[in-house]
Design a protein around this nucleic acid. Structure first.
Length: 479
RNA sequence: UCUCCCUUAGCUCAGUUGGUUAGAGCAUCUGACUGUUAAUCAGAGGGUCCUAGGUUCGAGUCCUAGAGGGAGAGCCA
């Protein structure tokens, strides 16, 4: 007999059919009701056993977390919590689970803290919350590929090991096969990287953007979706040392096109999750609501998780320039009452408190900020006609902060070369990048989306470590 | 890296001005019950009070240092 997935059985609900399910026991109540979950859906199927006429030795081994194969007839349920259930004819124990051991893990029929679950990242997949989070993580990932594929983008694999160290996006992890104890030294007494695997120092990528630009200037529109590494000592609920990033790059797009693409893309992802992950989303929505009740009123979310996703799909993002944002902030109540810790002045980068004010207090809506001062943005961003600002854009989401950073790229060779000089970057480090501005250069634009931050938004999880299966953070690389 | 907070049973937490034998709920085990929905009822077992020093007649409680965790900041996605 062929094993059927619980999701399929519940969807079809063919009363009278004999079915075989395989899964893990979530709870065994009243010596009669076995709750089985096989990961295909957040829903369990209830298997009802006639314990008075059943092998007691088998039932003894039906414990929380054990793996079972259950055969029986699908019948309408007499109870209230479920429409159908399995009237058991046979149980096979596939894998035992010792209750004394189980008790020490997260696999108990009780509520656990997210911190405790995180310590057992290898087991937390078995919980409702993380089952839902990781099914949704998959769906977000798939939606991203589908969106770009439907629009004719090419998925580009940019290198994970990179030889360019001029990307300026943060501290990098060195990759080396040299003996860490006794590295070979050159005449100057420094480490001789000419003897290393790649004959020079190399690092893990912090961004695939520069490489993506090369491909975009030939294939027209590309996107990357891969692991990204930052060796920064960031200890926050929104940073990881290893995370995934999506970086689309489109030839002939200007900043306006770039904003339109970003907004359409983010709305598509939210709509896809609303359409395809209803059960998991509802669970996370209800879970959050329950948790909110224990918080003081001021700290509660005004909208539920599902309402927040709908809000994004149904409303236009607020777009304003950096210069306008400075004006808004300087005229705001917290500025006038000196409630901001950091000053607001043209030329100074905005701080978290300012971004939060704009997104969470003033507009209560995703905000796209554009046209930042050149000094506080990267060298590759296109200089505006005013000579002071660049065609940059940051998309700010409530509760998450910066979820997307992007720009129109500087395509003019002379200005780009000047930028290299201004930023003290030797041209020879990125000669391959400069080359693209010599052979039919065109305006182009792109952005980077932090994948985990997007998953945080659509699941409502508030710590980034809870939306990636095995988080890597300073001092922590377990599993 | 900085600031603040936390660390007591498998988990979540209580523990009074420093004072006898450190508690509760859940979980686990045993028994009862049996159409349950985080089942219920009765009972049992379960403790390096994070670690190392210190103050004190006496420290879970006070002080110092360290470790781990959380929230926020910086950096950013």
């Amino acid at each position: 007999m062929k094993r059927e997935k619980i999701a399929d059985i519940l969807r079809a609900s063919e009363i009278g059919k004999t079915v075989l399910v395989k899964g893990w026991v979530r709870a065994f109540r009243s010596n009669r009701f076995i709750q089985v979950n096989d990961g295909s859906t957040i829903k369990n199927i209830q298997a009802v056993v006639d314990f008075e006429n059943f092998d007691e030795a088998i039932l003894k081994r039906v414990t929380t977390a054990s793996a079972v194969a259950i055969t029986g007839e699908l019948v309408e349920s007499m109870g209230a919590g479920q429409a159908v259930e399995i009237k058991v004819t046979a149980i096979e124990i596939l894998g035992d689970a010792n209750p004394d051991e189980v008790q020490k893990t997260v696999m108990q029929p009780k509520k656990h803290s997210l911190e405790f679950l995180r310590e057992q990242a290898h087991l937390r997949f078995r919980t409702n919350t993380f089952g839902a989070v990781f099914r949704i993580r998959h769906a977000v990932s798939f939606a991203i590929h589908k969106y770009f594929n439907d629009k004719g983008f090419n998925y580009l694999h940019t290198p994970i090991i990179t030889g360019s160290d001029a990307e300026g996006a943060g501290e990098m992890f060195r990759v080396s096969t040299l003996d860490a104890q006794n590295p070979p030294l050159n005449d100057e007494g420094k480490v001789d990287f000419s003897q290393d695997f790649f004959s020079k120092p190399v690092n893990l990528t912090v961004s695939g953007q520069l490489e993506a630009e090369l491909a975009a200037l030939a294939l027209g529109q590309v996107y990357t979706f891969g692991p990204t590494f930052r060796a920064e000592n960031s200890n926050t609920s929104r940073h990881l040392a290893e995370f995934w990033m999506i970086e689309p790059e489109v030839a002939f797009n200007d900043l306006k096109d770039n904003m339109d693409l970003t907004e359409d893309f983010l709305k598509y992802i939210c709509q896809y999750i609303l359409d395809n992950c209803a059960d998991d989303l509802q669970f996370l929505n209800d879970r959050e609501e329950k948790e909110q009740q224990s918080k003081p009123k001021l700290e509660r979310n005004e909208l539920t998780l599902i309402e927040r996703l709908k809000f994004v799909t149904e409303n236009d993002f607020i777009r304003l320039t950096y210069t306008e944002a400075i004006d808004v902030l300087r005229n705001s109540k917290p500025f006038k009452k000196k409630k901001f810790k950091y000053d607001v002045a043209w030329g100074v980068d905005l701080h978290s408190e300012h971004e939060r004010y704009l997104v969470e207090k003033k507009y209560k809506c995703p905000v796209i900020l554009t046209d930042y001062p050149a000094e506080i943005k990267a060298f590759y961003m296109r200089q505006n006609d005013d000579g002071k600002t660049v065609a940059a854009m940051d998309v700010l989401f409530p509760g998450i902060g910066e979820i997307v950073g992007g720009s129109q790229r500087e395509e003019r060779l002379d200005i780009l070369k000047k930028k290299f000089a201004d930023f003290d970057i030797p041209e020879e480090d990125l000669d391959w990048y400069i080359d693209t501005r010599k052979f039919g250069t065109v305006p182009h634009a792109g952005f980077g989306l932090g994948f985990e931050r997007m998953v945080m938004f659509v699941t409502g999880m508030t710590n980034i470590r809870d939306v990636i299966p095995f988080p890597r953070t300073p001092g922590n690389a377990s599993f």
